[in-house]
Amino acid sequence: MDESAIIERARKGDVQAYNRLVIEHQELAYNVARRIVGNPQTAEDVTQDAFIAAYQALDQFRGGSFKAWLLRIVTNRCYDVLRRHKRRPQASIEELTEENESAPFLRSAEESPEQYQQRAELAQVIERCLQSLPPEQRITAVLCDVEGYDYNDIARILSISLGTVKSRISRARSKLRECLQKVQELLPQQYRLGVER
């Protein structure tokens, strides 16, 4: 069954049909929320809230990409949370430790334990730098570089102009570069900026 048919059934009150959409997109929604708010528990709440809001507002969906529409709801909810907290989300030491211990990376067969550890460290540093960005730049960077959306998609998801997308991405990467340069010594040699790999 295609997506539009599922949405039509969900509009008529078929929650089970809607749940198929949820299962299909929940990982994406959770990851975006997780990168933006920086806290697993809050990201979980935001994701659940976004799926409920999307179901209740299915009448507002005018067709097109359901995924883009859902991501708009998720990012709006993230904005709300960040505004409510009025502070930049900071990952606690416990969370970072937990992430390290829970081994978030899949280790490939040819990757040595050392290489895996280095990659994990790099990811940790990048996440910290990502959390130091202003919310709107962080959201744009997450959508573009983490999730791989192109400029037009991001403009549609965030309801902003293409010029704004370009500007935000440029500023976000510049700040990330500055942040990573500050913590160069923490990075493995091959991951330091300016070093040819």
């Binding site: 990982e27 990851n31 994701t47 899949l106 990811a123 990502l130 570089d145 991951y191």
Partner: peptide, 10 residues
């Protein structure tokens, strides 16, 4: 570096 960030499971 951003693209290599791990994807988390829900």
């Amino acid at each position: 570096g951003l693209r290599q960030l791990p994807r988390r499971r829900a």
